[in-house]
Computed example of a mutant assay.
Amino acid sequence: MRIGIVCPYSWDVPGGVQFHIRDLAEYLLKLGHEVSVLAPADEDTELPAYVQSAGRAIPVPYNGSVARLSFGFLSAARVRRWIHDGNFEVLHVHEPGTPSLSLLACWAASGPIVATFHTANPRSRAMLAGAPIVASAMEKINARIAVSEYARRTLVEHMGGDAVVIPNGVDVGFFSALEPRPEWQTPADRQQDGGTIGFVGRFGEPRKGLSVLLEALPAIVAARPRTRLLVAGRGDEDEVLRNVPGHIREHVEFLGMVSDEDKGRLFQSVDVYCAPNTGGESFGIILVEAMSGRAPVLASDLDAFSLVLEGGAAGAMFPNGDAAALAREALALLGDPARRSALRDAESEAVRKYDWSVVAGDILSVYEMVTESTARVTAENGGTR
């Protein structure tokens, strides 16, 4: 099948949507499909062979983050040319309600369109204000996918219509097969009064919640004085540590941006993986990755996180934004190896439904449904759509 996938966000600034599109494209390529991805990207960005750049993106504040989008006459022309040259059997656009390439692709396309909605924001003024603008594009979409029930609810409330829920995918085998890095593990002589906590994310964004974890760290260190926090991701380290007491800073180690392999090794190495996010999460792909890497997970009780952690059966949770509760739960996990082992076993079961072998199969079923339906309608109309 010839499949075109449109990414609305800049490829050179990785995020959950970009990772989802990358992994989906690569899995479909392994299955023998022809796949082309169109995405914004700077000229000097090294792109995979299957990705075509639509030009540079413009940063726009959105949903507690900064979305880098591409819109305008030049972008529209590039979208039309890519669609024409690709002659796709199905076009899969992501976040078509966002003023970027996916919306332009919906306006330009004439064949079957599948759309995936990632955003979960029940009070989005931007989506409410933009709904009339994107209405004509939404009418052309043949099938809608939401990555979670909360993303589906946001779609229904802001744009109408409905969607089938298909979660984000993860290569579970990739993360489960990696080996830990000894320097990131807790040494034997520190297991009684220490431990290693991991955090991965763009820690410069307040909604990722690192400030909540750092607020909890003094209480954790007071009870287990040889505890350390490993932070991987992008952000201003000095700014993050500005309000952290000096004696606590030595317990925090910044790893910078890490590869997928090292991210997986981090999950395999830590005693607890903490996701203190405060909002704006539609799914929780980082939790699934951590669970695939057999890291006992401690997360804020966001609805999306609770769904992934099966209400607490596959991970510990604490009230969103409550640093004292985070500290209590972290100490309970660090002091209970048997519970951590039980969580690892529960996680191994819980992540199976998120493996790409399952998720990509469900997405392909949607592709086949819309292409067959479109072909049938075309035939009934005498060869015109």
Rank of each mutant, 00 (worst) to 15 (best):
L287I: 01
A360W: 09
A223T: 04
Q191C: 13
E46H: 10
K353A: 13
P59C: 09
A338N: 06
L241T: 09
P96E: 02
P337S: 12
M369S: 14
R125N: 07
K140E: 13
A163S: 11
I197L: 15
Q18V: 15
I286L: 14
D301R: 14
I21N: 12
D42G: 15
P225M: 02
V13I: 14
T227F: 01
M369F: 07
W184E: 03
R224M: 10
R234L: 09
A131G: 09
A332L: 08
A39F: 08
E372L: 13
A41N: 01
A143I: 06
L38H: 06
Y367E: 04
L217I: 09
A146N: 12
Q185V: 09
L229C: 04
D162I: 03
C274P: 05
V37T: 09
V172G: 00
R190H: 15
R22S: 12
V308N: 00
L255R: 07
A108S: 15
F71V: 03
L241I: 06
D303F: 09
G315L: 01
L24K: 05
S36F: 00
V79G: 03
A54Q: 01
A57V: 01
P218S: 04
D262T: 02
A54E: 00
D85N: 13
P96A: 01
G169Q: 02
R2N: 04
I113A: 02
R68C: 08
A76H: 06
A316E: 11
G246V: 13
A216D: 03
Q185S: 12
V66L: 07
G279E: 12
M138D: 06
L28A: 03
A342P: 14
L334M: 08
R340I: 14
M291I: 14
D260F: 03
L103P: 00
P180A: 06
G383S: 06
G64V: 05
A375L: 14
V170G: 10
R56A: 15
A222C: 03
S70R: 15
L24E: 11
F267H: 15
G233A: 13
A327I: 02
V35D: 02
A379G: 12
L307R: 11
P296R: 12
G201V: 04
V90K: 01
S75W: 00
S269T: 06
E183N: 04
V13M: 10
G169W: 02
L307V: 12
A108N: 07
S148Q: 11
A350T: 10
A129E: 04
S269R: 07
D262L: 05
I83L: 15
L31C: 00
V231F: 07
E205R: 00
